[in-house]
Design a protein around this nucleic acid. Sequence first.
DNA 1: CGGTAGGGCTAGGGTTCT
DNA 2: TAGAACCCTAGCCCTACC
Lengths: 230, 230
Amino acid sequence: MGAPKQKWTAEEEAALKAGVRKHGTGKWRTILSDPEFSAILHSRSNVDLKDKWRNINVTAIWGSRQKAKLALKKTSLTPKLDGRTPVIPKHDGRTPVTPKQDGRTQMTPKHDDNTIALSTAPQNDEVVDAKPLAISSGTMQASGSKEPVARLDKLILEAISNLKEPNGSDRASIASYIEVLPLVCKDRYFYFADTINELIKVQSACNALYHGDFLISLLLQKIYSLLPLF
Amino acid sequence: MGAPKQKWTAEEEAALKAGVRKHGTGKWRTILSDPEFSAILHSRSNVDLKDKWRNINVTAIWGSRQKAKLALKKTSLTPKLDGRTPVIPKHDGRTPVTPKQDGRTQMTPKHDDNTIALSTAPQNDEVVDAKPLAISSGTMQASGSKEPVARLDKLILEAISNLKEPNGSDRASIASYIEVLPLVCKDRYFYFADTINELIKVQSACNALYHGDFLISLLLQKIYSLLPLF
DNA sequence: CGGTAGGGCTAGGGTTCT
DNA sequence: TAGAACCCTAGCCCTACC
């Protein structure tokens, strides 16, 4: 009787996504204060936003895993690196070794010591040969973890495979799948918005090649080129 | 995130408590400068100390009146006393309208009498035999979540090891460490049995480090008194 | 500036409800 | 049972006030 449980409406969810797109994740209060969204989200708290965003991502991850049954296309660029040391975003026994830097200057995104270092780096789109590296993987955290979060490249492949349609998938479908990225890349300030924009661009440009290996290659290239940005 | 959140270790917490005992509250900078604690707390700022102290007190106060967590387990043994804590003006991150109101009932106060003051006078704790702990037995919870309990055994070990003294640690020292337990165990009564088991194991394994059953009894007793209902 | 007190916020684990 | 919505709180950050 106390809490009726307010279900999120499509409008609210859209506003949330737009808000994240505009201000970034973790800026719940900011989003809520933005007059552009405050009207729609007036009955939500910053915590609600955070929780909802989490649910959205969790769902996305699971969705992709569920459909993972589909055999991946044997593409020429099938990543073959396995047994890679998973990156673990969690910090367990962090010993007090690092004094916190006080001069809180710019938020220079710093890599964690245990993140993968992508040496490729440049956001140059001219990358021709998609040579997937072990992007991050990172386990879903010990407890109850069945499997490590799918590798980024696998997720992409999975998405492409599953979305495969006679005449190609539409933008929304792709985006739906790609939404999984923020989760995979979180902790690195890899913003969802940028990814989506970029991917959609790629898609538009290669609409004809849709689910051929070539497109996959392009997508992967794109993803990889974006990763070093954080 | 630049700063991954440094969780306070039992050692740090103990140092903080000792520092407050020695210099008083509000003397964060002083505590930090005290060579006795500076080593342990070197990665903390005076503000951190202040915040941690606040958290400790808040949880301590609330811990006593904490809601009686469901005893769960279909095992009838314990009557399922369910209740909500009367919500008090606590300002968490939520600021929105809060259309939600939940007037739940108060819990049935069994007996909330913990909050033992270990820092000062020793209470007449009659050494009780570590037998009455056979409370909820079954909850083995075997595989799976072992994480939530946060390694109670390690804490104990840590305490005993660190407090190790030529002739054994005195009551105050032990108590200082044990104080941390309620924080770890709170709201997780269902793990209590496991906890006890862990303690017993520790007792067997580290027999040389403490004063035998006598001390363990004290520990158990203390834990017992700190855990609300049962 | 340096320090403390106190309000506020987010992240993440938990819990409740459906 | 899973998923969505909601709760709890540790650790930090921000601002006001000396």
